[in-house]
Structure formats: C-alpha cells, structure tokens
C-alpha cells in the first residue's frame, strides 16, 4: 500500500485514465442536454439559467478531470470574457430593440415591425432569444467563478 501511495503521488493524482475516459464520453451528452434545457425553456422545466449552469458544469468537469490548462485550451480566457459580455448584451439588446420599435422594455410584440410574423410568434421567439443570452452569460460566468476561486486569482492551475 505504501508503494501505491508513493506511485500515485509521483504521477500527479488527478491524472487518472479511467476518470478521463469516462468523462470524455460523457461531456458531449451533458453539453447537448444543457442546450436542450436552454431551448425548451418555455415548455418544460428549466430555461436559460438552468441550462447555462449545466453547460458550465460540463466545462468545470473537464477542468476538474483534465486540469485547468486543458479547459483553457478548450475555451480560452479571452473567449470566455467575450462570451460573458455577449450574454447580457443579447438580453439587453433585445429589450432595447423593443423600445426602439415603439414598445416597452422586453415587449416582444413590438418586434413585429422588423419581420411580420405576428405578435404571438414574436413573443415566443423573443423569449427564446433572451434565454439564449441568459444561458451564454450564466455559462461563462460560472466558468469564470470556478477558475478564479479554484486557483486563488492566478488562473494557472486549478484543483
């Protein structure tokens, strides 16, 4: 047992082939499930926030198992910053667009003047767009919080 401990300490305990292979297979399905939760927000439980949490958890799982540098290779810090700005911008942009076309903030039926689909279809579609924005924002900010907290500010080596 002693030699096993020494061997495990030498070989960086968080580099584990069994865990890595299982997680590799699981991550695409978790991501697709998160996207499903985002898209079906107005028919089934969930929505932008919950789907964003699941999407972020998939990348946090990758950072846990493969190490934080690998997750930085997947989504780099700059892309993550851009995404965390894009999410709220989509949300506020849709709302401001409604004001611009003569409605209230987030009054999607006003968007009917861009493309005449009918106000009801625009309400459904507007909620969908807002939820996509919320999902992107929540995902990137979850990831950012994990990275900063797990590496004490210096984003180099996680848990």
């Amino acid at each position: 047992m002693r030699e096993l401990q020494e061997e495990a300490k030498l070989r960086m305990p968080w580099q584990d082939v069994i865990l890595q292979t299982s997680v590799r297979v699981l991550i695409p399905f978790i991501q697709l499930f998160g996207l499903y939760v985002v898209v079906h927000g107005h028919y089934s439980p969930g929505g932008g926030f919950q789907g964003g949490v699941i999407l972020g958890a998939a990348i946090i799982l990758m950072a846990l198992v493969f190490g934080l540098p690998a997750s930085k290779h997947y989504i780099s810090e700059n892309v993550n910053k851009t995404l965390s700005i894009t999410g709220p911008l989509v949300y506020c942009g849709i709302g401001a667009l409604c004001i611009l076309f003569g409605g209230y903030f987030l009054d999607y039926s006003a968007l009917n003047r861009i493309l005449p689909l009918g106000p009801i279809a625009w309400r459904s579609f507007g909620i969908f767009l807002v939820e996509v924005g919320v999902g992107i924002g929540v995902m990137s900010i979850m990831l950012r919080i994990y990275r900063v907290l797990s590496s004490a500010g210096t984003i180099d080596q996680g848990l």
């Binding site: 590799r24 991550i27 695409p28 991501q31």
Partner: peptide, 13 residues
C-alpha cells in the same frame, strides 16, 4: 445545437 456540439467536442468523444 448538434452542429455546435459536433464542432466543439468531436475530439472528446
């Protein structure tokens, strides 16, 4: 969505 996952995560599967 499937296209997004396929582009980003194909080398994981």
């Amino acid at each position: 969505c499937c296209l997004l996952v396929a582009i980003f995560s194909h080398d994981l599967l």
